[in-house]
Computed example of a mutant assay.
Amino acid sequence: MTNATPELSGILEAALYVDDLDTAEQFYGTVLGLPRLMRAGDRHVFFRVGATILLIFNPAQTRHPPAPDALPVPPHGATGPGHVCFSASDAEITAIRAVLDAAGHDIESDFHWPNGARSLYTRDPAGNSIEFAEPKLWAS
């Protein structure tokens, strides 16, 4: 007999990896205006995004096993650019584009999908692909 897998209700946190936490903190905290929850030296900085947490890690620091007196979070990390998509209305995407333009961040793409949902793509200073999309992108 097999056990049924419970239905997952959402994503609690998402992680991106950067080499320069100061630059990442300026982009996510100042340019995008995300509330910073905490920072631990050159290891990580965390931001609140609605009910979700965006974790920004320095992969060189997260590859090390935890100290004996630390929480038992296993080593992790990634190399190369990642991707995260923020949920935003069409009007919010327009406002975000204006903020990014004013801050000198290039827009890679701004378009409507076949179902009519709008997506805006840019890169953070570490090269991660950052998307802002209308939730109807994934509506069934």
Rank of each mutant, 00 (worst) to 15 (best):
N3C: 07
T5S: 12
P6Q: 04
E7H: 09
E7Q: 14
E7P: 02
S9Q: 11
G10S: 03
G10C: 07
L12W: 01
L12Y: 02
E13D: 11
E13K: 06
A15W: 00
L16Y: 04
L16A: 08
V18W: 00
V18Y: 00
V18R: 01
V18C: 10
V18T: 13
V18A: 12
D20I: 08
E25S: 15
F27V: 01
Y28K: 06
Y28T: 04
Y28D: 02
G29C: 06
L32N: 04
L32Q: 03
G33E: 12
G33V: 08
G33A: 10
G33Q: 08
L34C: 09
L34I: 12
R36N: 02
R36A: 05
R36S: 02
L37V: 13
L37I: 13
M38C: 12
M38T: 08
G41V: 13
G41C: 10
H44A: 03
H44K: 05
V45R: 02
F46I: 04
F46D: 01
F47M: 14
F47S: 11
R48Y: 02
V49N: 01
V49E: 01
G50R: 01
G50Y: 01
A51P: 00
A51T: 00
A51H: 00
A51L: 00
A51G: 00
T52W: 00
L54M: 07
L55K: 03
I56M: 06
F57K: 02
F57L: 09
P59G: 03
A60K: 08
T62I: 03
R63S: 03
R63Q: 08
H64V: 10
H64R: 15
H64S: 05
P65D: 12
A67E: 15
P68A: 11
D69H: 15
D69Y: 14
D69W: 15
D69P: 05
A70K: 13
P72K: 06
V73F: 15
V73H: 15
H76T: 05
G77Y: 05
A78F: 01
T79Q: 02
G80S: 07
G80I: 04
V84H: 00
C85H: 03
C85Y: 02
C85P: 11
F86Q: 05
F86D: 09
A88T: 01
S89H: 07
D90E: 15
D90M: 10
A91V: 10
A91L: 13
I93D: 09
I93W: 09
T94N: 15
I96F: 13
I96V: 15
R97Y: 07
V99I: 15
V99T: 15
A102T: 14
A102G: 10
G104R: 08
G104W: 14
D106V: 10
D106S: 12
D106L: 14
I107H: 13
D110H: 15
D110P: 12
H112P: 01
H112Q: 10
W113K: 12
P114W: 04
P114T: 12
P114S: 14
N115D: 10
G116D: 05
A117K: 09
A117Y: 07
S119C: 11
S119F: 02
L120W: 07
L120K: 05
L120I: 04
L120D: 05
Y121P: 08
T122M: 11
R123N: 13
R123D: 07
N128G: 08
N128L: 11
I130P: 02
I130F: 06
I130Q: 07
F132W: 08
F132L: 09
E134I: 08
E134L: 05
P135D: 02
K136D: 13
